[in-house]
């Protein structure tokens, strides 16, 4: 079952296209990684999913309902941490949690609220004011606030930002626990591929507001499949020629700079022959060794295109 279904979503801030024609879907119990460099449009997209920002175009369905017309009933089932875990610094952890529990329409008594704080390791500091907390403690309290009403869908925007290695490990453990034990659907954004690799089941790479690639993490990280980067004398023509052949199903991304295939190593010679038979003039055909390299090349290729076009 699709929990999130985003179609042709765009957000323009005057001349800036923060998100452009983005479509993706998140299935139930997915840990969906939302990967992109800083400024790629991850936070803007999450903010649109949380009704903080109004889309310029496109539609968002959550739990099969239109977000615009069913805002309250959808948000009742959603918990979120957006960028920094900012809370009321002059209030205690318990008071903060209590406020947001009531706003989320969760009827919890004192001991249930304490259990929530205990889950994120803050029970001992329940009655300390938030301004005395470290960044890691604030992050954990932010998570407790996001989870206090037992939501079905959790959105975490860069949840490990500013945390030390232990804090990062704790958050990762908590995400995996929520997904595996509590069967929550989680959308988590990050600019770190390694982080997504460790927790996500499916992922989407976004760059400059546009979708680069979406897929199953295991498949994308499958060591038996390699990424082949093809450069030709005329990429547009090559793309249209490949599009009508069976090789099109192996294409991961295609643009004016390069065409990237994902396939097992033993069929690469067949691809080479097919390209020649299609009269495609090859400048280079070479393997990419890791998704990290792939991710970097995609995002840097795009930035190169943009710089050159300016």
């Amino acid at each position: 079952m699709e929990v999130i279904n985003v179609r042709s979503l765009s957000k323009h801030f005057k001349d800036i296209k923060a998100v452009e024609n983005l479509s993706f879907s998140v299935n139930e119990a997915d840990v969906y990684g939302f990967l992109g460099q800083n400024g790629a449009g991850k936070s803007t997209t999450i903010r649109m999913l949380l009704t903080l920002i109004e889309p310029t175009h496109g539609s968002i369905e959550i739990f099969g309902k239109d977000l615009n017309s069913h805002r309250a009933s959808i948000l009742r089932e959603v918990g979120a941490v957006i960028e920094r875990p900012d809370l009321y610094k002059y209030l205690t952890a318990f008071e903060n949690l209590s406020i947001f529990a009531r706003l989320s329409e969760a009827k919890l008594n004192k001991s249930q609220l304490m259990e929530q704080l205990d889950m994120v390791g803050l029970a001992a500091r329940a009655h300390s004011k938030v301004h005395t907390f470290s960044q890691g403690m604030k992050q954990r309290l932010g998570l407790a606030v996001a989870l206090v009403h037992n939501p079905k869908l959790i959105m975490l925007d860069e949840p490990t930002n500013g945390l030390d290695p232990q804090g990062i490990a704790d958050i990762r453990k908590l995400i995996l626990f929520l997904s595996r034990e509590k069967k929550k659907t989680i959308l988590v954004s990050s600019h770190l591929l390694s982080e997504i690799e460790q927790i996500a089941t499916r992922m989407l790479i976004i760059d400059r507001g546009k979708k680069i690639v979406e897929g199953d993490v295991k498949e994308l990280f499958d060591p038996s499949r390699m990424l082949i980067d093809l450069k030709t004398t005329d990429n547009s023509e090559a793309i249209s020629k490949i599009a009508v052949t069976r090789w099109n199903e192996f294409v991961q991304t295609a643009n004016e700079k390069s065409i990237v295939f994902k396939m097992k190593q033993d069929i690469v010679p067949q691809l080479s022959r097919a390209l020649i038979e299609m009269n495609i003039e090859i400048l280079s055909i070479q393997p990419r060794h890791s998704l990290e390299e792939y991710f970097l090349s995609l995002t840097s290729a795009n930035s190169h295109v943009d710089h050159s076009s300016n």
Partner: peptide, 14 residues
């Protein structure tokens, strides 16, 4: 300024 407005808006309150 505190950053709490965005949390408030994500709650099921119009």
């Amino acid at each position: 300024n505190m950053g709490t407005l965005r949390i408030l808006i994500t709650k099921p309150v119009s």
